[in-house]
Design a protein around this nucleic acid. Structure first.
Lengths: 163, 163
DNA sequence: ATAGTAACTATGATAATCATAGTGACAAGG
DNA sequence: CCTTGTCACTATGATTATCATAGTTACTAT
């Protein structure tokens, strides 16, 4: 391909987001960061992406101030990657993607009856299903408000990757 | 590249969504469909994508039952593309992307003071800002509930593309 | 001194992308 | 009836991103 089209100067807000989010590697890395994975190798293993792509995307994400790189040990040099406020604010996008997939992207019974990932509202304990507002207490759901429990199938898949 | 990684069999819901949405062309086409653009040439012109990519993506979107192709005239054969229920349910994702961009992706004053695209709630008339729940009446916002008014800069950009 | 771990960088084959041009089916105007 | 125009695509070739694999750097641990 020739140089990928640059959408960062469009005035359409969806276009501007698509410039960053219209990339599977970026989405997978963000997912892992939202799940609390912070280390390079951990993200390479869990996403299944090559280290050169993870490296390139982290450069991009840092440049866009969505992620920050932090040395958590000097000798030997070890780093972790964290979401910034701008990055954490992408929660709604990733959560909307999750909700859509839970509703449409699985065959009947594929996950064993329930959702692939079950979320409950920390504040009131209600199962939030695939809503953007807690069905128990009516509060809008934000990053950190939810407690996730992967289905057995998802748990097994994740264990296989980190093993 | 070798064959792009296939995420359609992962049990992670974000991964399954990323399989479809982690692609700028798909996001731009969906955006146009949500804006009511239905014709092939119109979408080619507005997205700036080449016709071969729009064609390939429509094949994918139809296969995934996110879009349907409908002949609106027999002679000469003319077609339009519409979102299915599964496609319309992606509204939350695109709207979350819009909200994030409005909050983070513009320089101070770049759009002339207001948002790049202003939305008001049809039901109560309130400006929804960048919320997922109407700040006026408290209702969750869904596809069709909003009335959009592009900023002068965005309006000019769109006019330039269709001209 | 050897093995191990974390965080990367380098290389080469392959495939997706963009720009440009072209096709098929028909309608309207001169 | 012949040229021009419109819409919905398909075809071609150069360029570049991506993946798989291997290698590097900088240490610690045994």
């Amino acid at each position: 391909m020739p140089k990928r089209a640059d959408l960062s100067d469009t005035f359409c807000p969806v276009g501007r987001s698509a410039e960053l989010l219209g990339d599977r590697a970026v989405l997978l890395i963000l997912r892992d960061l939202f799940f609390g994975r912070r280390r390079f190798e951990e993200i390479v293993a869990n996403t299944g992406l090559g280290p050169q792509i993870v490296s390139a995307r982290f450069k991009l994400l840092i440049e866009q101030v969505v992620v920050e790189r932090h040395a958590y040990r000097e000798r030997p040099p070890r780093y972790e990657y964290r979401l910034t406020a701008k990055g954490r604010d992408l929660f709604d996008v990733l959560y909307a993607m999750r909700n859509w997939a839970e509703r449409w992207a699985y065959e009947e019974g594929e996950t064993g009856g329930g959702p692939a990932m079950r979320y409950t509202h920390r504040a009131c304990g209600a199962d939030v299903g695939t809503s953007t507002v807690c069905p128990g207490c009516g509060e809008p759901l934000r990053y950190g408000d939810l407690k996730g429990e992967p289905s057995p199938a998802l748990k097994a898949e994740q264990a296989a990757k980190s093993g």
